[in-house]
Amino acid sequence: MIEIENLCKSFTLHNQGSAVIPVMAGAHLRVGPGECVALTGQSGAGKSTLMRMIWGNYLAASGTIRVGTLDVTRATPREIIALRRDRLGYVSQFLRVVPRVPTRTVVAEPLLALGVAPDVALARAEDLLRQLNIPARLWDLSPTTFSGGEQQRVNIARGFAHDYPALLLDEPTASLDGANREVVLGLIEAAKARGAAIVGIFHDDAARARLCDREIDVTHFTPKRAA
């Protein structure tokens, strides 16, 4: 479902003496349906960079990233928007929403964008919020005022509203208590069971061991410093 070949990336900082910073070279990755692959490596090794490139958020310098049949590195913005709408989901660490939009709507939005009837989309959103222990009295409020853990759970609910065939998870259990962590692990396991291809960053060792079929150390893709 996700196939990465010979992927390279560098940043050119035009306003800092046009410094060119190579951050990734020759990255390879293959994730099949129902598989969960963990990206590992210390902070700064390029885990998030790789994830953002699959998402189409960072441009690749060379190489290919195939999600289903689409090569993200050559896709038009329209094609990436369509990919994100129905085939590729992303649970980032931070919730970014229009202020004042109620939590229920924030979670239902991916389904509304797919043309799902509002009552069905909102019912699904409420079901997920309930599973993730967000009290019903908060559903009409904007999540911007919620605690870090609550925001993360809203973000997860939103990311799981639609059954994407491919999913990117950036530390989905980072600031969760035991009970909620268990709910999230259950959601990820259910996604695997229905055949989703998952790429994740998990600093939670036990979660990684339980969910992931393989680990890829991205340090292997870090370009060697030129002397």
Partner: peptide
């Protein structure tokens, strides 16, 4: 969904909104 960045009457960068904002390519966009 998409952004066009203009400078001196010309479009200097054009792409997916979050890509242009998070990984801007042109000096001016940066």
């Amino acid at each position: 969904h998409r952004l066009m960045v203009m400078k001196d009457g010309r479009v200097i960068e054009h792409g997916l909104t979050d890509q242009v904002l998070d990984d801007p390519q042109a000096a001016y966009t940066q």
